[in-house]
Amino acid sequence: MSDFKDMVQADIKEIFLNFDEFGEIHTINGEEVLIIVDENELTEREKRTQAKDGELHRKQLLFYVSAKDFGALPSPGKLLVLDGKKYTITDAENEMGIYSISLEANRS
């Protein structure tokens, strides 16, 4: 029997990023990729965003993607284009072969 890490790697697409259950195809930097957008985290972050009328505030987004599909783990501060919109990467972590990537964009 394989070890736990091998089982997790095998389950990334079949369970964690299963298109029929959770994942959606989005365009990231010109490539179509299966990701999961974390709506709960997005909602919590939006609640914490405070802006007065006319001021810029930041839109925040968190998504999960297979490391194999995405490539190298991106560094915070780099730009990423998601579905034609430009974001700055604020955080990126490798969670056993699944990247958790946090984004931020200015909006008025």
Rank of each mutant, 00 (worst) to 15 (best):
73 L>Q: 09
49 T>Y: 03
67 A>Y: 09
44 E>C: 02
51 A>D: 04
91 D>P: 03
33 V>Y: 05
38 D>T: 07
86 K>P: 02
75 S>W: 03
92 A>Q: 02
64 Y>A: 04
60 Q>F: 00
76 P>H: 02
38 D>Q: 04
91 D>K: 09
49 T>I: 06
33 V>K: 15
94 N>R: 12
38 D>I: 04
70 F>H: 14
74 P>G: 07
46 E>W: 10
39 E>W: 11
94 N>L: 11
48 R>M: 15
85 K>D: 02
41 E>N: 11
79 L>M: 10
77 G>Y: 03
91 D>G: 10
63 F>S: 04
31 E>A: 15
68 K>E: 15
76 P>D: 00
40 N>S: 06
57 H>Y: 13
72 A>P: 10
53 D>M: 09
42 L>R: 13
37 V>H: 09
74 P>Y: 00
62 L>E: 03
56 L>D: 14
96 M>S: 13
42 L>V: 12
44 E>Q: 12
89 I>Q: 02
48 R>C: 09
39 E>Q: 09
41 E>D: 10
45 R>W: 10
95 E>D: 15
93 E>S: 11
52 K>P: 12
68 K>Y: 09
51 A>V: 13
83 D>L: 00
40 N>I: 12
86 K>I: 07
80 L>A: 00
87 Y>R: 04
53 D>T: 14
37 V>L: 05
55 E>D: 08
72 A>K: 15
76 P>N: 07
86 K>F: 04
94 N>E: 12
36 I>W: 07
70 F>V: 11
89 I>W: 00
55 E>K: 09
48 R>F: 00
80 L>F: 00
73 L>P: 04
30 G>H: 06
80 L>V: 07
54 G>F: 06
70 F>R: 13
77 G>M: 01
82 L>T: 01
43 T>H: 14
96 M>Y: 08
72 A>M: 05
60 Q>D: 03
76 P>Q: 05
63 F>Q: 06
48 R>Y: 01
34 L>F: 02
75 S>D: 13
94 N>C: 03
95 E>P: 04
84 G>C: 03
79 L>V: 09
88 T>K: 12
36 I>T: 04
79 L>H: 06
46 E>Q: 15
31 E>I: 07
67 A>F: 06
65 V>C: 15
83 D>C: 05
55 E>Q: 02
94 N>H: 12
98 I>D: 12
68 K>N: 08
98 I>W: 13
47 K>D: 14
88 T>M: 10
93 E>C: 03
64 Y>R: 07
30 G>L: 06
89 I>P: 01
60 Q>K: 14
83 D>H: 05
86 K>S: 10
51 A>K: 12
63 F>L: 14
47 K>I: 14
80 L>H: 01
41 E>S: 02
45 R>P: 00
61 L>W: 08
56 L>M: 13
97 G>S: 11
80 L>M: 11
34 L>T: 09
88 T>N: 13
74 P>A: 05
72 A>V: 14
57 H>Q: 05
70 F>K: 08
66 S>K: 15
85 K>P: 01
57 H>G: 01
44 E>H: 08
70 F>Q: 12
60 Q>Y: 04
42 L>Q: 13
78 K>C: 03
89 I>E: 02
30 G>E: 01
44 E>V: 08
84 G>K: 07
90 T>G: 08
57 H>W: 07
51 A>N: 07
